[in-house]
Design a protein around this nucleic acid. Sequence first.
DNA 1: CTATTACATCGACATACGTGAGTGTTATTG
DNA 2: CAATAACACTCACGTATGTCGATGTAATAG
Lengths: 117, 117
Amino acid sequence: MSIDLELAPKQKRAAGERCCEPVVYPDVQRDHAIRMAEVAKALGDPIRLQLVDVLRKHAGKVCVCELVPLFDISQSTLSHHLKKLRDAGIVDSERQGLWAYYYVIPDALKELSAWLS
Amino acid sequence: MSIDLELAPKQKRAAGERCCEPVVYPDVQRDHAIRMAEVAKALGDPIRLQLVDVLRKHAGKVCVCELVPLFDISQSTLSHHLKKLRDAGIVDSERQGLWAYYYVIPDALKELSAWLS
DNA sequence: CTATTACATCGACATACGTGAGTGTTATTG
DNA sequence: CAATAACACTCACGTATGTCGATGTAATAG
């Protein structure tokens, strides 16, 4: 999950010399970084983070109509946030008649969580 | 780290009735959510996430001049990203002569990490 | 069929973001 | 002092974001 990278020793050098050797950044990590940043970005809004918190707490699926009164935002804004979470692959939804039920996709946060700890 | 919240039972009801009881959202969680979302937002860019990855891997402090060649961005853009990470309280820096050394603030990612796992 | 309900989408707006070129600042070299 | 080097900051630009009101779209009720 972390990169293999040898950095040049850190020490003051005379100006005119290179302060450090250029380092090659392995491409392996880049894909993971892009994916994890995508997830982190989706969590980078207080309302979306709280949405995920509520959904995670309930093992089952949660109806949108139960989510709306939790926040001081309009229904359309909430729907927008849910779409962001869907696009990031963090949650998914099921339609049942008029209602839409949302749930956190298992292991969606696993990669980021593992990297952070 | 998670909220205390009792949701109404989920079942289809006749239209005209409320689909669910309004729920009170505890304010306690809100502060945590705002703080964690701030951290997540700062990590919501691939370059910044990789920056934190490099800094975390090196227990010591890392010179900016060692970071520049790792990414295909200008020095000013890198400096901008480092400022974002500083503003989010994830990293800090020390000046030593011409060089600036960055490091991850211990436990800066702790709260978010704990919530994610 | 009509009305209503639950939810998604569209349009619009102000703000924030990522980026680079250029400039400023500070410290070191000669 | 003048030149240079490392880094931060300013300005500008196109794009993305969060928000709401309004509209669209299904499904249910009567």
